[in-house]
């Protein structure tokens, strides 16, 4: 039996409802997020290397807002955990949670591809 309290990776129903079933707008926003989230993750990586808790917290906060707008509930939860880790200055937690966020982003992209919102990855030859 699945854990009902676990946040979903992508709540398609929610984003369609919030954006009044405008599929073109939803597609634009999802593609924007999928394309831009890597920049946030790169900045997060740099902030960790610089041991900059303030920057980590700020980036996690930005990711939380962006992820909320694209109904990526699991990423919102992951970003919230990173914020909490930064507040506590807990580097072990931050590192683990950032790894979870990176893995969550890959799962999110995969779900979008499987549901036809993103183009499938090209197979390497």
């Amino acid at each position: 039996m699945s854990d009902r309290s676990e946040p979903v990776i992508f709540d398609e129903f929610d984003i369609l409802r919030r954006l009044a079933d405008d599929r073109e707008l939803v597609q634009d926003v999802l593609m924007a997020f999928a394309g831009d989230i890597g920049n946030h993750l790169d900045r997060m990586d740099r902030a960790i290397k610089d041991r900059d808790l303030l920057a980590i917290r700020r980036i996690a906060h930005t990711v939380k807002g962006a992820a909320a707008n694209v109904s990526a509930d699991a990423l919102v939860a992951a970003a919230r955990m990173i914020e909490a880790g930064a507040d506590q200055g807990d580097w072990t937690a931050i590192t683990e949670r950032v790894m979870a966020l990176v893995a969550g982003v890959e799962r999110y992209r995969e779900v979008l591809r499987n549901r036809g919102w993103l183009l499938p990855l090209k197979e390497s030859t």
């Binding site: 707008l25 926003v29 831009d36 707008n69």
Partner: peptide, 13 residues
């Protein structure tokens, strides 16, 4: 807005 996705969404709306 500092985030591209949120900016795009508001801009389009």
């Amino acid at each position: 807005e500092d985030d591209f996705t949120s900016r795009l969404l508001l801009q389009k709306l």
